[in-house]
Design a protein around this nucleic acid. Structure first.
Lengths: 160, 160
DNA sequence: TTCCTTGCAAACGATTTGCATTGGA
DNA sequence: TCCAATGCAAATCGTTTGCAAGGAA
């Protein structure tokens, strides 16, 4: 199981990973990685590019993101709106899953206790194997209503 | 657990569901539902609209699809490419998950044996509960290489 | 007649790409 | 110096919408 990298060490890991592909770890790329690391879940190119810390055109942001994705530093997801959202690859953060709020669309990371993850893996491997599939990974998204939305919805229904 | 509806009965269920929203079950909508039912996994608007059986402009297809989605007849997913893909809602097909081939992008439905599904549900409910989340549903995607791609890749590597 | 549905074309938003400029090894 | 990285603008692609025509109740 990968250990979430401390902030200092993270950039060194990324630098090495990029170096293997002969790609430079520029200031721009570094701040994208830093900003994504701060975030509590996947972020869109638009969100990242308008982040005060960098203020870079979206086109450049997309270029940076796809380079980092191809080098396996970032991973791309698509929420229910189809917009791409990026987060650090799991070898940098540790394996995790997502809580998706069907009300506000927010996606939050969730860590899975070792025993649960191991049951999960057993189930997944068995399902994939039965289907003649070479299983590489799995993605679990838990859909529901986040605490904030739950309260808001409750309040609204009371006042109506 | 929902029972996969036999083809004849399916359209009657859909008709009733639409009737509840005072929406007509037209020929066009009916063939979309029929085509999706035939498919082995979620389909994009483009695929459906160019399907020989209907040959309808994509714009109309999107309208049909969103009506059916809003009435909870279809469910929309976004694959790794961010393109929307539609399939019958689970109350019409029974609960299932997906195998996603990282090589060719194909998505295939997979049924999950009752015992595995029940373990899965236990894990999901517990994870969501711990996070203060009101859990409604879960999506499990198994990523890997499908049998066809696996053979192709093996052959290619041999010949290189 | 009166809505609902459909086709076509234009509009939109997210993402990609061409090209000239900038910046670091 | 020289090639990679960046900014800007134009092009693409999936998806949505306005509007006029066709159809069913």
């Amino acid at each position: 199981m990968a250990t979430p990298a401390p902030s200092t060490e993270l950039h060194e890991l990324v630098r090495e990973q990029l170096a293997a592909d002969e790609i430079r770890y520029t200031t721009g790329r570094r701040s994208v990685v830093a900003t994504i690391q701060m975030a509590s879940g996947p972020r869109t190119a638009a969100e990242l590019s308008r982040s005060p810390r960098m203020a870079v055109p979206v086109s450049s942001m997309y270029r940076t993101l796809s380079i980092l994705e191809e080098s396996d530093v970032l991973r791309k997801h698509h929420g229910s709106d189809g917009v791409g959202r990026y987060e650090l690859a799991e070898w940098l953060t540790g394996h995790h899953h997502h809580l998706v709020c069907v009300s506000c669309g927010a996606i939050e990371d969730i860590e899975v206790p070792r025993h649960a993850e191991s049951e999960l893996k057993t189930i997944v491997d068995s399902l994939g194997g039965d289907a003649g599939f070479r299983v590489l990974d799995h993605v679990l998204e838990i859909e529901g209503v986040c605490h904030a939305c739950d309260e808001r919805l409750t309040t609204e229904s009371r006042s109506s």
